[in-house]
Each structure stands twice: as C-alpha cells, then as structure tokens.
Amino acid sequence: MPPLLRPELLYLSYVGIETDLIFNHGIDLPEFSLYPKVETEDGRALLRRYAKAQIAIATANGMGAILETPTWMANTDRAAALGYNAEALDRINAKAVTLLREDRTASEHHVLISGNIGPRDDAYAPSEQMDADTACAYHTRQINALRGVDMIGAFTLTYVAEAIGIARAAQAAETPVVLSFTVETDGRLPDGMALCDAMAACDDATDGSAAFYMINCAHPEHFAHVLDGGAWQQRLGGIVVNASRCSHAELDAATKLDAGDPKALGVQIAALSADHRNLRVFGGCCGTDARHLNAIATALRAEN
C-alpha cells in the first residue's frame, strides 16, 4: 500500500485541465502553460473552481482527492518562450502551493496536495535525453520551490533517466515523489521500454525511493494488456487516463477534442480497479473534464 494514501480510500486525480480549458471553454493557454493563471485574481479564481469541483466529486463518492498544482510546464526550459526566468518561476511555484493549501483548508475530506512537475522536454517525444545526474540537478530547483506539498507528482515522463533524477531530487528535498510514465498505444514508454522494466530500473537506481508509480496520458485500452498481475504491479499505484483512444501523434495533430464516452471510460476504470486492487489513484488526463471525473468516481463507488 502506498504510504501516502489512506488504506480505506481510493483517490481522485485530475491532470486534464489544459485541454478542457482550451477546447471546451475557448481559453487560450500560450505554450500550453497553465501556471500564469496563478498570477491574476481571475486566474486564481478559475483554478479554485476546478479544485473545489474535484473535491466535491471525490467527497460525494467517498474518495479522497489529490490536487495537482498548475505547474507542469513551470520549469526553466519550457517557460522560456513566455519570458519567465528562474526567479519568477520560483515565485509562481510557491504561489501555486499556497493556493491549493487554502482550498484544502476549506475541505473536510481527505485531500493531498501534489507539486506537479513535468519533463524538461516534450512529453511525448523528447528531442534529447538527460542522464540521471543532469536530470536531478535540473529539477531540483522546481522541487525546492514547491515546498509545503504532501508529495511531488512527476507526470508525462518518457524515459527512465529523467525519472531517476527526479526521484533523487525529491529524496534530497525530503519530499515523497510519485513517478508517472507516459505510455503509447502498445503500453510501452515512447522509447519502447516495457513499463515493468522502467519501474524496476528506477527502483534499482534509487533504492525504491518513489512512493509509487502511475500511468498517464493513455486510454485504458492502450495499457490494460500489460497489467499481468506480476509482482511489479505492487509498485503501480494509479492511472490517469485519456478520454480518447487516439495515439499521441493523432492527438498532437487534432484540431478538435475527442472526448470519448465518459460513462464507458468509468466502467473500464472500475473494471481495472476490480482486477488490480493495488491501484488506488484514478483520474483524468487529456480530453477529460468533470463529466469524466463524475463517471469514473461513480463507477468506482458502485464497484467498491
């Protein structure tokens, strides 16, 4: 059982806010970056609405909630196009934590705050790969700026060395970390590595320092076949899924959102929960919105 989580609860996670804002609400997010919203009153109100809605859905279905800071793109390389320097990003990362801590204070249900960090490069196909030491040095500053969170949530990781570096940086900061890998339609990482091998390599290189691992940015049909019930799955604690069955290449080229079938998605996730009790965190990634979160939480409540 991942030590961060209460054993009697399942948890609702959401990392799909960007696609919801852009495609469903017509809100422009330059460079696909959400973190500038922390800087304005209207932006903070928007982020609070999402957090409160997520908590409400979780609470109504007897789940805990994991709130992710809007800082997935708030690292120096990916923020450079918007003119943010390292000092400005430190300020924004810290503000994002404060914002969610206020939302948690208002909630009576069990809520964890996750400091969300993304990869240095493209979340589907990085142009180059860092070694673990370089990745550790690179991500240390953002992890330190996110102090006060319950955990670091590193999402859309595409190769092992960056995940190892992030785990080492979080360990140095004495902050629990969850490592979440992007998988393709074959259930493997973008570089072809099997998920079980990636997790084992990370554990071997970090003495198993990650609290647990997750799968992100894929439809259940892309990875269900790799969940073979092996011992490695005891380290797999959650899944945040895409609404669409499309590949990442197809999603990148899409001009219209494919929202899939929220109810069917909820049923698929509930079935995975029934078959794989090690999974404790469930939620939405690209293309999902409140409809999908409701469907997932409702199906999980019925199944459990």
Rank of each mutant, 00 (worst) to 15 (best):
I57Y: 01
A96L: 06
T71F: 07
R48W: 09
D42H: 09
I92L: 14
N61V: 00
S13E: 12
G237L: 10
H110F: 05
E108N: 13
M214C: 09
M130F: 09
K263I: 12
H219S: 09
L157T: 03
G16C: 10
G238L: 03
A218S: 12
I296W: 04
A270N: 09
A253F: 06
L272E: 03
D186Y: 01
G153R: 05
G284V: 07
D258M: 03
C136V: 00
V281N: 00
R168A: 02
A270Q: 05
I66N: 07
A135R: 10
R277S: 15
P7D: 13
S127A: 12
V160I: 14
N116P: 08
D122A: 12
G283L: 03
N93Q: 04
A224I: 07
L236A: 03
G64N: 01
Q171I: 00
L34V: 08
N85P: 05
L195N: 06
N242T: 06
L279G: 12
L179Q: 02
L300F: 05
V177A: 02
M193K: 13
E174H: 14
T255G: 14
K95Q: 14
T156L: 07
H139A: 00
A96G: 10
D122Y: 08
V149H: 00
A205R: 10
G43C: 02
A74S: 12
L227W: 02
A167Y: 06
E128Q: 14
N304E: 01
L46C: 02
T76M: 08
E8I: 00
A297Y: 05
N216G: 02
A259S: 15
A274W: 03
L157H: 04
T98S: 13
A161H: 10
E68H: 14
E221G: 13
E18H: 06
I166F: 07
G153I: 12
N24A: 05
I117S: 01
I152Y: 02
A145V: 08
A194P: 04
T185N: 11
L195D: 03
R91C: 12
F282C: 04
K52W: 07
V177D: 09
A249Q: 14
L12G: 08
A200D: 13
N304Y: 09
A53H: 11
S13L: 15
T76F: 05
C246L: 14
V160A: 11
A231D: 14
H25V: 06
E108D: 13
I143N: 04
L189V: 03
D207Q: 14
V241P: 02
G43H: 09
M199P: 04
V160D: 02
S114G: 15
D289E: 01
Y11R: 10
A170H: 11
V149C: 15
A56E: 15
A231T: 13
A274D: 13
A106L: 14
D186S: 15
I239E: 01
M63I: 01
G43E: 10
P30R: 09
R48I: 09
Y50L: 04
T156P: 01
L9D: 01
I269M: 14
I239L: 15
D203P: 01
D20M: 12
C217A: 03
E31T: 03
A51L: 05
A56H: 08
G118I: 12
H109P: 00
Q54W: 02
F155W: 12
I269L: 15
Q233S: 07
F32E: 09
N24E: 13
I164N: 00
A132G: 08
